[in-house]
Nucleic acid binder design. Structure first.
Length: 277
DNA sequence: CAAAGCTCCTGACCGC
DNA sequence: TGCGGTCAGGAGCTTT
């Protein structure tokens, strides 16, 4: 559920809250999320100082002292919260699905909660990031300069699948999930059913609208980021006014035609049959 | 290669 | 009120 803007907002909050802090203790409250925790997970993190938190696609990268990176993906329902130090003798009361607890040297707790456990955490050496199996096949970042019309045209040239699931493919462009894929296609006037290799002249405007929807959501997220404790992955959709997403049967914001709902690749697709060709 | 299907998981929601 | 069924979805993995 969290897409690039939500993950970026969480990243900013975490970086601000955690940079410079040291991890004193690591508690795993179960053995796995979507994948098992690495065997040396707790040991690798204990005693490490957090230098910064960055992002690649929808992954968060916690850069630690000794050239080690803790990688986290929020999946659908993953969220980090930072809790104030517990008073002496007071025991923290954890919620259902609090799976990972990092205690910092100043007593604060970083808590990772993930009801559906579609998230994951890994440990990786800094030099191995680029070739790590999670990162090796990732496409360009949509908001970086390498996401050009030339790049996208080539990437789509052999894809006959419908454009909508194609722009959600992390090997084509990263960070665009179901909501922003629906929105960007509406704003560009492209039918989600159009074969990816046939969108032709609409490639530059599609790039522009992907920029627009992602940047608007990041901006909206940033404006709400006053207190990190209230930022999460799931409730992180700051931009609640969607043109098509979740609006099946309701009138199109441009032409009043009812928004259609279909399924593509197992995902809900919403579009205006009149505005999107 | 591309493409499609399967799978993980829990909570919300709906109809009865 | 409780209960079964359905849906939501990121992305790695397997199969075609």
């Amino acid at each position: 559920m969290p897409e690039l803007p939500e993950v970026e907002t969480v990243r900013r909050g975490l970086d601000k809250a955690l940079a410079g802090a040291t991890i004193n203790k690591v508690e795993l409250r179960r053995e796995n999320l979507r994948t098992p925790f690495p065997k040396d997970f707790a040991k690798s993190l204990t005693g490490q100082k957090i230098k910064s938190v960055t992002r690649r696609a929808k992954y968060l990268l916690f850069h630690l002292d000794s050239d080690i990176i803790m990688v986290a993906h929020l999946g659908m329902t993953g969220r980090f919260t930072v809790a104030a130090p517990q008073g002496k003798g007071k025991k923290m009361e954890f919620l259902a699905h609090d799976h990972v607890v990092l205690t910092l040297d100043d007593g604060r707790l970083i808590i990772y909660n993930d009801a559906r456990r579609f998230g994951l955490m890994e440990i990786c050496k800094r030099k191995e990031v680029e070739n790590h199996k999670l990162f090796r096949h990732l496409a360009p970042e949509p908001l970086e300069s390498e996401f050009t019309p030339e790049y996208l045209e080539k990437a789509l040239s052999k894809r006959k699948t419908p454009i909508k699931p194609t722009i959600m493919d992390q090997e084509i462009v990263v960070g665009v999930g179901n909501i922003y894929a629906n929105e960007a296609l509406f704003l560009t006037g492209i039918s989600p059913l159009k074969p990816a290799n046939e969108i032709g002249k609409k490639i530059p405007p599609l790039i522009k609208e992907i920029h627009n929807v992602l940047n608007a959501a990041i901006e909206a997220g940033g404006s709400t980021l006053k207190d990190f404790a209230h930022v999460s992955g799931e409730s992180g959709y700051f931009q609640h006014k969607f043109h098509v997403y979740g609006r099946g049967g309701k009138p199109c914001s441009k032409c009043k035609t009812p928004i259609e709902t279909i399924r593509q690749a197992g995902r809900a697709t919403f579009y205006c049959p009149k505005c999107q060709k």
